[in-house]
Write a protein that binds this DNA or RNA. Structure first.
Lengths: 164, 164
DNA sequence: TATTATTATTGATAATGTCAATTATTGATA
DNA sequence: TATCAATAATTGACATTATCAATAATAATA
């Protein structure tokens, strides 16, 4: 039950009897599942034994090397404890190293090692290729409109959640 | 790394430097996270201590009572072993019972018990209410268009995955 | 300075996921 | 019909991820 099974037409009764397979939740779930399976498999084929969540960290660090753990947690939608342990794993694999922030000594920043950088540089084109096939047949406008809707829903959820 | 971090504009270089927060993956991840937190919390407040995945099973059984475990696995995008264990949990909680299919004796079907039915009948309005606030400000057309795009992407992924 | 807030870690445990092996049954085929 | 292959579910063994409270270290504020 990752997300929103009922589809939009839940407002009236007819909709309650709508097919589960037509709901946003179904789509999001399956999308997530398929993407995970696919990308992890492709990375494995390329010689990178890595979990999907570890991959998320590397992808983010590729863009924002030296991110703080709080930032990683917020951006990846995870508890800070989860980030601590994901980083432990990546450090063990030699992909990441931690360095204390020079200014604020409470803060720890995560950096790609040479090896980690090599890995993500190698993985990135694989990811790009996979994404390209994923969005085949979707126009930029359609894609943008989709993001707008999802962002709206997300914003609604976050708003109502924080009130509780 | 649940899903597709890069956003559409990955095709050119400018896009590669786009913000992580603008990607479809970011949206889907956070959407999933926020929805989970919110609905589980609301169920808990109503006296139902239930996990998000268990909730998915109940929601599906509400619609398709007597579903086979294979069907549950396919619909919820989970391994059959996961379904076996989710059902074990729900049986322990008294919400679900298993009955063998009368025709094909390999097949086991999952049914809501009286208690399980009561629970989902009580939870359903909570879910509906939560969903209603989630999609506030989204028109039916926008919602439908979003589903079309996501369905397209899902279809692309499934197609390319099965070839591998 | 004393208090409060923030950042990260740790411990303990629960929840999910993966994947191969096994059992029971059914369907197909020779 | 006897055999073999396919299917449905369970189990075992384990990895991964999540949750949540407690703690330590540091920083910010009154």
């Amino acid at each position: 039950m990752s997300i929103i099974y009922p589809s939009m037409q839940h407002m009236n009764d007819a909709a309650v009897s709508q097919r589960f397979e037509d709901s946003l939740g179904y789509l999001v779930n399956h999308l997530t599942y398929a993407f995970r399976q696919g990308i992890v498999h492709r990375c494995g084929e390329a010689g990178f034994v890595i979990t999907h969540e570890e991959l998320g960290v590397l992808v983010l660090l590729r863009r924002e090397d030296g991110a703080t753990q709080t930032h990683l947690a917020n951006t990846l939608a995870k508890d800070k404890a989860v980030i601590t342990r994901l980083l432990n794993g990546l450090v063990r694999k030699g992909y990441v190293e931690r360095r204390p922030d020079p200014v604020d000594r409470r803060v720890v920043r995560a950096f790609l090692t040479t090896s980690g950088n090599g890995a993500i540089q190698c993985i990135h084109p694989i990811l790009m290729d996979y994404v390209a096939t994923a969005i085949r047949g979707v126009t930029q406008d359609e894609f943008d409109a989709t993001c707008v809707v999802l962002r709206r829903i997300l914003s609604n959820l976050q708003q109502v959640n924080e009130k509780a």
